[in-house]
Write a protein that binds this DNA or RNA. Structure first.
Length: 568
DNA sequence: TCTCGAGGCGCG
DNA sequence: AAAGCGCGCCTCGAGA
């Protein structure tokens, strides 16, 4: 009964045999004792070996779930639990809850990873306590057995047996589980009806034209713009040309942003805004997008766990997290199925209520409509103002209506406002803040630190602006990162529940999409209600797992629909 | 010719 | 209605 199954790349100088190269090496552990020698696994045999071992529910240990798991999934092998070294490494690097072991210190002394780089393509630093140095160029991104074993031990040793340590351990487990879910969702994909999408494009843009040419309805609008602006050669895709043409027509715009154009009164504004809308649709989610991303009736994006500093997922390719509402009608359940779409209602202010132990805000958060609750307690029932004030407090708004409403919010919910203000002050001073489970905000960059040593009035203004900007980041970080943890726990609990149901013989369907605080399941029609119940139970379990017993509700809105467009 | 930043806008 | 946070993708155009 192996407790851990460590998966690594088999590195050898031996020439490939007739059977092919050994692609992987497996080391099983009973508790902390190796259960026999490492096991070489040849190309193509790995999924079967994994599936066999999975009967014992080991925790798999691997450098990168994103590297290994898609191959296993493609062969039908599902993993229950994993410890993802790459993801844990990123968390430990920034976490104030991690012990300052040589391993953690070595991580912290490496230069920050380039922002936005693909998580599994980052060069994984190899740390050896014996040599006390980092190897910048690993032989293989999937890791050798020696390095995987060493780093696993290093990572476990970096988590103390304290309350912050136990929370950190939960975070590492949840992040790793997220890697499994992300790979599974990516493999499942959102059921996508290309015909519906094409019909939508045709009605908006007109019939498909050759690549590199303007769709008919955009061409018509472009002609109209040229006439209205008296600019026969205008290319409306060029901001510079467009701005010049607007100025020539006496329109005093400083940019071509939608919101600025909307303020202006001129016959050209309406067709121009229409052109920009269509242009966006055509270029980002047009015919080419369907060609590139819809295969076998599914949209299969790549989710990037750990791709956002706050712990949210990012995505790569297809703009999976930015699917516009206008084309969501193309996300359609297959025959005999429905989409069960659930979203956590006003997640971030509810999280703030817990973080700040703000009893008043917790009162407001009891029930479905938190903003109405805030309005009733502090804004004379004015929901719109309550919402603007709350969002402004979490984002750091200083101007406009949102800024003006902040004092009113602070009077009613002093603890909640004090918490985000304190996070802002910490960030402005160059400090770091943390999520509830211990995901730390990144250190300020070297440029930022340099900016704070201003030697002139002008530089001082820039320094202050940079400080305020970082304050807004850390202010939001505490809320967004903890919300991401709640969502991760929600997904983890839901996955466990779905797998348990499956083990008992009921296939409730697949998780097919995740969007920060929203999850979509593709479910056999007859099980829709049961799936909805599991989603709600998972939300309650997530809050309990994360926070224990707290007086804040985390309601989820659930829609059972055939088309994603009908989800809200 | 290619790369890369800015501007803009889609999502939460 | 936009503003304050976090992202990814597209186009243009400047510069190597």
């Amino acid at each position: 009964m192996p407790r851990y199954a460590v998966l690594a790349t088999h590195s050898t100088s031996q020439p490939e045999s007739e059977a092919g190269a050994a692609s992987a090496v497996l080391q099983l552990f009973n508790d902390d004792e190796p259960a026999g020698p490492p096991l070489l696994v040849f190309e193509g045999q790995l999924p079967a070996v994994v599936a066999d071992l999975e009967a014992h529910s080991p925790r798999w240990v691997m450098d990168s779930t994103a590297h290994w798991y898609p191959k296993l999934l493609a062969a039908g092998s599902v993993i229950e639990r994993v410890w993802d070294l790459s993801l844990c490494r990123m968390i430990l690097r920034n976490s104030a809850s991690a012990l300052a072991t040589p391993y953690v210190n070595a991580l912290r002394s490496t230069p920050p990873e380039p922002a936005g780089a693909p998580a599994h393509a980052l060069p994984p630093p190899r740390v050896s306590e014996h040599q006390g140095q980092l190897f910048a160029e690993p032989k293989d991104a999937a890791g050798s057995l020696e390095s995987v074993l060493a780093e696993f031990a290093d990572q476990r040793a970096a988590v103390p047996d304290t309350l912050p340590g136990r929370r950190l351990r939960l975070l590492l487990a949840a992040e790793s589980a997220g890697a499994l879910i992300a790979a599974e969702m990516g493999a499942n994909g959102v059921p996508w009806d290309a015909d519906v999408h094409h019909a939508q494009l045709e009605s908006e843009l007109g019939p498909r034209t050759p690549e590199g040419t303007r769709p008919p309805k955009m061409e018509e609008l472009a002609a109209e713009l040229r006439t209205l602006l008296n600019s026969p050669a205008l290319n409306p895709d060029s901001q510079q040309e467009l701005l010049r043409a607007l100025h020539r027509a006496g329109i005093e715009a400083t940019s071509t942003r939608q919101w600025e154009l909307e303020e202006l009164k001129h016959p050209v504004i309406t067709p121009l805004l229409r052109y920009k809308k269509l242009s966006r649709l055509a270029s980002t989610n047009g015919y080419a997008w369907v060609d590139a991303w819809i295969t076998g009736g599914r949209f299969r994006p790549e989710y990037v766990v750990g791709g956002v500093v706050t712990g949210r997922w990012a995505s790569r390719g297809g703009g999976a997290l930015q699917i516009p509402h206008t084309i969501r009608d193309a996300a359609r359940a297959e025959d005999g199925h429905v989409l069960v779409v659930a979203d956590a209602a006003q997640l971030e202010p509810r999280i703030l209520a817990v973080l700040a132990r703000d009893a008043k805000l917790a009162d407001a958060a009891r029930g479905r409509d938190l903003y109405q609750g805030i309005a009733d307690l502090g804004f004379g029932g004015d929901r719109a103002h309550a919402k603007i004030a709350m969002l402004g407090a979490m984002y750091g708004a200083t101007t406009g209506e949102s800024g003006r409403l902040l004092p009113q919010l602070a009077r009613t919910f002093p603890d909640a406002v004090a918490l985000v203000e304190a996070a802002a002050r910490t960030g402005e001073a160059g400090g770091s803040v943390s999520s509830f489970l211990g995901r730390g905000s990144p250190e300020p960059s070297a440029d930022w630190k340099r900016s704070q040593r201003a030697d002139s009035a002008e530089a001082q203004r820039a320094a202050d602006a940079a400080a305020r900007s970082r304050g807004r980041f850390t202010r939001n970080f505490v809320v967004q990162s903890t919300a991401a943890e709640w969502a991760l726990c929600w997904l983890g609990e839901l996955r466990r529940a779905l797998n348990a149901a499956k083990a008992e013989g009921t296939d409730l369907g697949q998780m097919v999409m995740f969007l920060h605080d929203e999850v979509m399941l593709h479910v056999p029609e007859q099980h829709a209600q049961r799936a909805a119940e599991l989603i709600e139970a998972s939300a309650r379990a997530a809050a309990e797992l994360l926070f224990g017993s707290v007086p804040v509700d985390f309601p989820v809105g659930i829609a059972i629909v055939k088309s994603y467009a009908d989800a809200k």
